[in-house]
C-alpha cells in the first residue's frame, strides 16, 4: 500500500470496500476467473499440456500446430491428443499424454456415429456440461465465450470512457456555446435506435469483433458525458481550481491533475455496471444473430441454441447459470464500490 503512495482518502475507501464482504469476495472471485480465462488454453483445450514421446517432451499448448506425424501417426493434420492418449495407454510403452482438465476446444465437433448431438453431460466422455447441437463441448464454449465477452466489454469500456470523460469534462469545464452545442449533439445522437443500426451494419458487413466494438462505442459514449459534465462543472467552481489557475496552470493541467482525480468516484462506480451491460449487450446481439459471426464461441449463441432445443436442457441451464452468476458478482462488486466511495458514509439526516 505504502509503495503505491495512496492518499488516506483512497485507503479509507479501499478498507471500506474490503469490509463489504459480498462485494469483496465477488471481486476476488471475478479476478481469479479473469486470470484463469487468460490462460484458458491450459485448462480447456484439445491440445495436450504435455506429451512424452520416445523420451522427448512436447508442450503443444502455445506452440505451432503439431501434425500427427510428429507422434508417429499417419496423418498430416493436427494431432488428436485424446486419441493419442488412448493409443499410448494401450501400447503401454512409457509414452504418455497429459491433457487439460477439459480436453476439448471450443470449435471441434465431437461427433460419434449413432449418437446425435446435443449429447447430455457425461464424465466418461469428459463433456462435463454436455455438448451443443453440433457436438461442441459446452464448457469450452462457455469459457471461451466468457473470455470474448469480457474482452469485448473491457474494450468497449475503454472507448466509451475515454470519449465520455474527455467530452464530458470539456463540456463542464468550458461551458458556454461548446457545452450547448454538445448537449444538443448528444441529445440527437442518443435518439439513434441502437438495434436498427446494428441490424443494418450486420446486413451489410459481417460484424467482426472490432466493428461491433466501434459501432457500440459510437452509439454508447454519451452515457458518461452527462455525469462527467455535472461533476466537472461542480468542481470547477471550487477554490482549489481558482488557486491552480492563479498559479498559472493551463486548462489541460487543471482538468487532468486537479479536477479529474476528484471526480474519479463517479467514474469508478460506473465501471462494474458498464462491464455487466457490455456482456449482456453482446449476449443479446449474439442471441438475435447480429453479433459475432459463427462459429465464434458465444453465450448468446448458446442461449439461442438452448431455447430452440428445450429438450436438451443442459444447454440452456449451463449458459443461464453462468450468466446469472457472473452478472450477479459484477453487480455485487458495483454495489460495494458505490458504497465504499459514498462520501455520505457518516452523514446523518435529522
Amino acid at each position: 500500500m505504502s509503495l503505491l503512495n495512496l492518499n488516506p482518502q483512497t485507503i479509507k475507501q479501499l478498507k471500506r470496500f474490503r469490509s463489504i464482504k459480498r462485494g469483496y469476495w465477488s471481486s476476488v472471485l471475478l479476478a481469479v476467473l479473469l486470470v484463469l480465462c487468460l490462460v484458458a488454453e491450459l485448462l480447456v483445450n484439445s491440445r495436450a499440456l504435455m506429451v512424452s514421446y520416445d523420451g522427448e517432451w512436447f508442450f503443444p499448448t502455445y506452440t505451432s500446430l503439431k501434425p500427427g506425424t510428429t507422434f508417429g501417426l499417419d496423418y498430416a493434420y493436427e494431432t488428436n491428443y485424446r486419441e493419442l492418449r488412448a493409443k499410448f495407454e494401450e501400447e503401454d510403452e512409457g509414452n504418455w499424454v497429459l491433457m487439460p482438465p477439459v480436453p476439448y476446444n471450443a470449435f471441434e465437433n465431437d461427433l460419434k456415429v449413432g449418437s446425435y448431438p446435443p449429447n447430455p453431460p457425461s464424465f466418461e466422455d469428459e463433456h462435463y456440461l454436455g455438448t451443443d447441437s453440433t457436438g461442441r463441448d459446452i464448457v469450452a464454449r462457455l469459457v471461451y465465450g466468457f473470455r470474448i465477452a469480457i474482452a469485448f466489454s473491457g474494450l468497449l469500456l475503454i472507448f466509451n470512457y475515454v470519449a465520455g470523460i474527455i467530452i464530458g469534462c470539456a463540456m463542464g469545464y468550458f461551458g458556454g456555446a461548446f457545452d450547448l452545442l454538445f448537449q444538443r449533439v448528444i441529445e440527437i445522437w442518443s435518439n439513434i435506435p441502437f438495434l436498427y443500426v446494428i441490424m443494418i451494419v450486420a446486413s451489410v458487413v459481417v460484424p467482426s469483433f472490432l466493428t461491433l466494438v466501434i459501432v457500440m462505442a459510437a452509439l454508447g459514449w454519451m452515457q458518461l458525458t452527462w455525469n462527467m459534465r455535472t461533476s466537472t462543472y461542480k468542481e470547477k467552481g471550487r477554490e482549489y481550481v481558482s488557486a491552480a489557475r492563479a498559479l498559472g496552470a493551463g486548462n489541460v493541467r487543471i482538468v487532468g491533475s486537479h479536477i479529474l482525480p476528484n471526480t474519479i468516484a463517479v467514474i469508478v462506480t460506473f465501471v462494474p455496471f458498464s462491464i455487466a451491460s457490455g456482456v449482456t449487450f453482446l449476449t443479446a446481439l449474439d442471441y438475435l444473430g447480429f453479433g459475432l459471426p459463427p462459429p465464434t464461441p458465444s453465450w448468446g449463441e448458446l442461449l439461442s441454441q438452448g431455447t430452440n432445443q428445450l429438450q436438451a436442457p443442459w444447454i440452456v441451464t449451463s449458459v443461464v447459470v453462468a450468466m446469472v452468476v457472473i452478472l450477479l458478482m459484477v453487480t455485487y462488486v458495483g454495489e460495494a464500490i458505490r458504497e465504499a466511495f459514498d462520501p455520505k458514509q457518516f452523514t446523518y439526516y435529522e
Binding site: Y75, Y77, E108, N109, S133, T134, P294
Partner: peptide, 14 residues
C-alpha cells in the same frame, strides 16, 4: 451454420 461448422473443421485436416 451447424453443417458448415462441421465441414470447416473437417476441411482443416486437409
Amino acid at each position: 451454420t451447424d453443417r458448415l461448422v462441421i465441414l470447416k473443421e473437417e476441411a482443416k485436416k486437409a
